[in-house]
Amino acid sequence: MTEVEAEVAVTPPHDIQHTAHAPHDPHATATGVTNTKLAIWMFLASDCLFFGAFISAYLLYRGRPGGEGPTAAEIYNIPFTSVTSFILLMSSLTMVLALAAIMRGDYRRLRIWLLATALFGSVFIGGQVFEFTEFYREGLTLSSNLSGSTFFVLTGFHGAHVTIGIIWLLSLWGLATQGKLSVGDSEKVEIAGLYWHFVDVVWIVIFTMVYLIPQ
């Protein structure tokens, strides 16, 4: 072992030294990840199982006979849903841009991108409302058959998640317009973003499993 290597080996990296002095800084945590960020990750992990149960139910029941009226698979408007899905996915991009903006201290772009994200999310929800209405007209309802029950409850709960995300984003946008979000608050945007990306990822899974994979 050369002398340089030995020195590297005995000197802990800076961040580890910092952690060792953690108690003197009330913000420091044992891992270096803030409490709030860790908590949102835990919540999202939990939420995976929630959606997992509904997706499992959908897949289990897919293509089963029984009930009346069309199944969801028979009346999907894939091009339409693809467009709204694309818009929802693009909202993840604007979310990232919002975070990048607040980290740079560019508050004007922060407001623009937050609003854009909420807007894209609202377009998606609008599309879902339109889709649900169409399906009801064509005879697919919560109670018409298994396909309706599993489809509406699964996508409905996803829609509720998106709606909560939109309210969250608009609240942040409201704070930003009052000048109450500064660089130091970038984690607030980041956490809303984690939630938002999660909701998008869940939609990718739902869109693939529920809409795209043929019976």
């Binding site: 939990s46 939420d47 995976c48 199982l49 929630f50 997992g52 149960a53 509904f54 139910a57 029984g66 009930g67 919560l142 109670s143 058959n145 298994l146 309706g148 029950s149 599993t150 409850v153 709960f157």
Partner: peptide
């Protein structure tokens, strides 16, 4: 979350006549 999903299905079956 798993039992929550199951309970929601029961709730929908009871109250909104779903077919779970």
């Amino acid at each position: 979350p798993i039992v929550t999903a199951a309970l929601i299905m029961v709730y929908f079956d009871r109250n909104f006549a779903t077919n779970f």
